[in-house]
Amino acid sequence: MVNRGASQLKNYARIIGTGGYLPEKVLTNADLEQMVDTTDEWITKRTGIKKRHIADTGQTACDLAEMASRNALKAAQISPSDIDLIIVATTTPDRIFPSTACLLQQKLGVSGSAAFDIQAVCTGFIYALSVAEKFIRTGSAHTALVVGTETLSRIIDWQDRTTCVLFGDGAGAVVLQSSEDLGVISTHLHADGNYQQLLTVSAGISENYHKLREEGAFIQMQGSEVFRVAVRTLERIVEETLVANNMDKGEIDWLIPHQANIRIIEATAKKLNLPMERVVVTVDSHGNTSAASVPLALDIAVRDGRVKRGDTLFLEAFGGGFTWGSALLKY
């Protein structure tokens, strides 16, 4: 677990720019009705999802990350050469190696700074944000680019109606910079590998690698079990984060959650005593974009004016592993 309050270190890590990118292709619930035995009503009632974006055949996770990163850099009014740390959270990297972060570094036309990937599935962005914040707070970096990017459509079985309706592709990014102004207040990270079989891709480079060639490797999920654990776990991390910072629920301005399921989002909002008007919801139009969902939602809320400077934000996510985490910050 990571849990370090703002008072313990001198430098703050503050978000100075956000960016997002979604592929042009849109797959609606009506489209899925033509592909598998499902209905718009069933999908909407159980998940809140109406559509999702799908990357083109030649479009990679790094391509999406580059677009989101350039939008974030533009918002921050800095150039790629100002970045001295790149962390990419992804479950669907372009290659086994080099890391997607190194590929992104090359696309941005810079070199020399540290660049690496983090794999914590849907919690990946929260993990990456936490790591970048520690680099900045300890003086190891001044300006960090933190990206969540996914092409989950590549690991979806489009004949499995329990999973193919849930996921989409996209990327979100933030620029973190050392500041005297309060930024990231605390982060809280957890994992429990005992639940690994409830949400998994059961093949990889070392285990069941033959499946990659012979059968393909796709997301497998025991949905009802994942839902129950996710709700309980996110309730606990709300309490943990508030207690760690001696903060009342009423001090939270916005909940920016992982966009997996509207019912999980509503349960977390209830725990925070936040009306849904104070919750950023994009699951209806993006589906579950895993590590990209939190930064995408943040970027949308910043750009449409809902999230303003000085607002207190509660970011949270839950994903395969299981992993889960939160970040409390001043925007």
Rank of each mutant, 00 (worst) to 15 (best):
D84A: 12
R161L: 01
Y195H: 14
W324G: 02
D304W: 11
W324M: 00
I49V: 14
Q105I: 02
T44W: 09
E215Q: 14
E225C: 03
Q119G: 04
K330L: 07
H210S: 13
V184N: 08
T323V: 06
S79V: 09
T39S: 15
F135S: 02
D40L: 02
P257S: 06
A13V: 00
S186P: 01
V36I: 09
E133R: 11
G250L: 06
G223L: 08
H286A: 11
S130W: 00
A132C: 04
G148S: 09
M276E: 03
V88E: 10
T44K: 14
Q197H: 15
S69A: 15
V165L: 00
I262L: 15
A76D: 13
Q220L: 01
N261H: 11
E215R: 09
H210T: 12
N288P: 11
E133S: 15
G250W: 00
P98Q: 11
F97H: 05
V231S: 05
H188Q: 12
T18G: 12
G48W: 12
S99N: 05
Q105W: 04
H190S: 03
K50Q: 13
L27S: 00
V280H: 04
H53Y: 07
V294E: 03
K10S: 12
N246S: 14
T268W: 00
F314K: 02
I78Q: 10
I219A: 08
S111K: 13
I43V: 14
E240T: 15
W158V: 01
Y21H: 15
N245A: 01
F167H: 05
I83Y: 08
M1F: 10
H188W: 04
A72K: 04
D56C: 00
L73Y: 08
Q220N: 12
Q197Y: 12
D192A: 09
S202T: 13
Y21I: 00
L272M: 04
P93K: 07
T151C: 14
F167C: 07
P98H: 04
E66C: 13
V229N: 12
G124N: 05
I252S: 03
E150D: 14
R306T: 06
D157I: 02
M247I: 00
K271R: 12
Q196K: 13
V226I: 14
